[in-house]
Amino acid sequence: MNDSDGPPGPTGLKGVLESPIVGMSPWIVFSLVVGPGRFEIAVALALACTVVLLAAGRLLNRGSSWKILEVSDLVFFAGLAVVGALAGQGTLRWLETYAGEVSNIALVVIAFGSMAVGMPFTLQYAREQVDPSHWHTPEFLRTNHVITGVWGLTFLVAAVSGAYGDIVLRDPNDLWTGWIIQILAIVAAIRFTDWYRRWSGPGSCGSAGSRSPRSPGSPACCCPWPACSCRWGSPSSSSRTPGAVCPSSRSAPYSPRSCVTDPRTPWAREGR
């Protein structure tokens, strides 16, 4: 897809608010903060984060659609706030211990449930960043299924880790099960999301549309599949289109820069 194909995706603060990772931030905050004596503050922080993000999203991105994740954020944390206000001490103690696992399992259900109905929750965010001509392509749909699935597995790991600390170790504040494993899983999912959407987005080396050689100046990836490593600066003269410059991975997600030609530079590394 050329940069001129349709309106560009939102940038700056608007672009940040249209990220599914931002939509998951209330859940991440809640699962990391909640614990014995911290249920009320965890709910308050998550609900405040949800309200601020919703308000900012509606103000800065007028006309933006409501997302599955946004609605889930509001319903889940508003519900927990009501339960926490009405619950007795026994219920509060249970929530302080297990609410982190409950929230992670809820996200697992949202992730895999949205995939089961054909609407992975990242799809709604991604559609606002690409030209409508890509919305129903197999590559675009597969990318969002993969990314949503990875986040579902990430929160499953967090739920299992937290449950192990609570039930087996009987220590909700255990450093490894309550913090390190869960944070590492989230960081890994963020890194994978960034890498995979660049690798598999329209016109990238990983998309099906780029699995054949392109002529100089082609808007798709200039590197034929499977030897696409010029994105990482290791071209091979036997498998590249002369005069081609690979798209930059620093361009907007799902919208790699068009390939260009330069007779003075038969092979150009990304970013030069």
Rank of each mutant, 00 (worst) to 15 (best):
G271R: 11
I167P: 04
A46K: 03
S204G: 04
S234D: 12
E270N: 11
F155Q: 11
W176Q: 09
G206N: 03
V102W: 01
T177V: 12
V51M: 03
G243N: 10
L17F: 13
I181K: 10
V150S: 09
V108G: 08
V146H: 00
G209P: 06
G203V: 05
N104S: 12
S210E: 00
W225F: 08
G35W: 01
P226E: 08
V22K: 00
G6F: 01
P226S: 14
T177E: 12
W135P: 06
P263E: 08
D166Q: 09
S31V: 11
A111H: 05
I147T: 02
A208K: 08
A106S: 10
I28H: 00
T97N: 03
W66F: 10
G149S: 05
G12C: 15
C223P: 05
Y98M: 01
R240M: 15
T148P: 02
A111M: 03
G6Q: 00
V260F: 07
A111Y: 00
G88D: 02
D262A: 00
V130C: 00
P36M: 14
W179C: 12
S64Q: 06
Q89M: 09
I28Y: 02
W27P: 02
L156C: 00
G165I: 05
S212I: 12
P226N: 07
A126R: 00
L60G: 14
S248R: 11
G23P: 02
A189Q: 08
S229Y: 14
I190G: 02
S19W: 04
G203E: 01
P242M: 05
R240W: 09
R198E: 12
L69S: 04
L80C: 05
R272N: 04
P10F: 07
E101M: 02
I105C: 12
L32H: 15
S212V: 13
W232P: 01
L80W: 05
G12Y: 13
S239Y: 13
A163M: 05
W94M: 09
R127N: 05
P216W: 04
Y164S: 05
V22R: 02
R58A: 15
D3F: 11
A268Q: 08
T143P: 00
F192Y: 14
G37E: 08
